[in-house]
Design a protein around this nucleic acid. Structure first.
Lengths: 290, 290
DNA sequence: CGCCACCTCTGACTAAAGTCAGAGATATGC
DNA sequence: GCATATCTCTGACTTTAGTCAGAGGTGGCG
């Protein structure tokens, strides 16, 4: 009843029945689940037939038939791919977009209804983020993004507000040496975001300098994603990028209040060096030759 | 991407694919999912055929055939119900129990594997408890239980350790007026536990006294279950039980550090009264006429 | 150009799940 | 005791999902 494995299994039972309910609400629109899934995949912007097939794990014969049935309903049109006439591209018709919107409304209403009934929304959402991140850990994708992109800005905002919570004296970006976005773009550096499905759950910046080293900046892992060893993955990716750019020496600064980070650096080949900048926030400085 | 509804929907996508994986691991034993589900329902103690059918949401014809196929495999035996010869009762054979154990092992290994890969186990489990409680809130069952039962003792242990965390001076049961179990049993009082599936998520005690009133004691809601308005449900159930027992006046003591509790009492017809005992921990005293 | 790889589609299947009506046995209420 | 309801089971379906082989067109490369 109370051991960890039973708790996981209780969770499994709870979500199995919830998923069942979700599926059957989708059947309410008079279309088999398979066809509904294809329609929704197209609605969410997947247009290449092979990509949809892959995403939904369908056999090519089955996929073809499902697509045909959606065409017969007048929801979908297929054309051949511009660059490769073997491939087909599916798009929603006007009617199809309306039908897709109806599915979206169903999902949104369901989600809102679930949240509205709960009076500790933020805690519940945080728990859902954590579980979802753990369940999809193998599908977390690291991608280089512009440091001004929406995803990157979300990560940085979350990072700053976390520093504000964890530093006794709070945190004010304007007092810190906020790295210039252009130093975290190729070919000077890069900015990497970890995406779990549509949610950014971590980031790291590699900031080029003119002093013979590059700096690691803004390493952040969302609270919901801690425990997935994502910090290490992000650091590895940043180092790989640095090597690609011909960088041989890395430095970083951090604060002893961020104990997990210090722990990570110490166990991955970094060693402490004396202060190398006058930023007021950091009190620990590291270097690594790669 | 970042609004609450998207986060819920990301969670839905994550669990949908996880549930799919869980289902297909069950197919590994060479039996269709329907038959495996029936076998497992029987293994988990559901024996009445109508009850299983209801639980799994199956048509009676389908249920009958699935049961027949399990009988043909030699896994299940059916007999007629003792009290009602129309009903049938299914039990596992020796082979059936072995097969059920294999499914159990599969589930347990899967759950352990999931936990083992995560380095923040406790946080993850707490999150899973919270999500599971929210998803199954309509199936939370309040049941009167003996205050010495395993479930009750679990709740009380969790309650005491939470008081220890929340009171500045900590909490030591032996210093408090720990209610005698026999005062929280019918006909003097009662003890109610809220069960979500197999997990106790809340409790409340009604303690009979010889002073013309009964006391509400040990109101506790698991952190994972907060936001479900379970405190109110438990209090209502305790009041109902008090009425049944002919009790007209209720009292309780609490501590101002437990702000949610105080809030609940004030909004549900209780009013503050002077201290009526010498317990060192409470600093707030309430009364309610029912 | 020829060959091979690749994508999509169709035909021909199977398995699993689910539906529906009705038969047969048994319980329940008047 | 009889009508009616309830439970299980069987037969006869349908729908959905999924598999497999092969046809026919296209792309890429020597």
């Amino acid at each position: 009843m109370l051991d960890p494995v039973s708790r996981v299994r209780r969770f499994n039972r709870a979500v199995t029945s919830a998923v069942g309910a979700l599926d059957s609400s989708f059947l309410g629109r008079g279309r088999p689940l398979g066809a509904a899934r294809v329609l929704n995949a197209i609605g969410h912007g997947r247009s290449d037939v092979a990509e949809i097939r892959d995403y939904l794990g369908l056999d090519s014969g089955l996929m073809s038939r499902l697509l045909r049935s959606l065409e017969d309903e007048g929801l979908v049109e297929t054309t051949t791919h511009e660059d490769d006439a073997r491939r087909r591209v599916a798009t929603l018709t006007r009617v199809g977009r309306r039908e897709f919107a109806a599915y979206e409304a169903l999902s949104n209403t369901q989600a809102e209804g679930f949240l509205d009934r709960h009076s500790q929304r933020d805690a519940l959402l945080a728990a859902m983020d954590m579980v979802a991140s753990a369940l999809t850990r193998d599908r977390v994708a690291l991608a280089e993004m512009d440091p001004k992109s929406e995803q990157a800005r979300y990560c940085l905002g979350a990072y700053y507000s976390e520093l504000g919570r964890r530093f006794k004296q709070g945190f004010d970006v304007s007092l810190s040496r906020d790295p210039d976005a252009k130093d975290m773009r190729r070919m000077r550096g890069t900015f990497i975001v970890a995406m779990s499905d549509t949610l950014p759950i971590g980031c790291v910046g590699l900031k080029g300098t003119d002093h013979g080293y590059a700096e690691i900046k803004r390493l952040w892992v969302a609270p919901a994603a801690r425990g997935l060893r994502l910090g290490r993955r992000l650091m590895d990716a940043a180092e790989d990028a640095a090597r690609e750019l011909g960088i041989r020496l890395l430095r970083l600064d951090t604060n002893s209040a961020l104990s997990e980070a210090g722990q990570l650096y110490r166990t991955t080949g970094w060693h402490e060096i004396p202060r190398f900048n006058d930023d007021p926030y950091p009190d620990l400085f590291f270097e690594k030759r790669i």
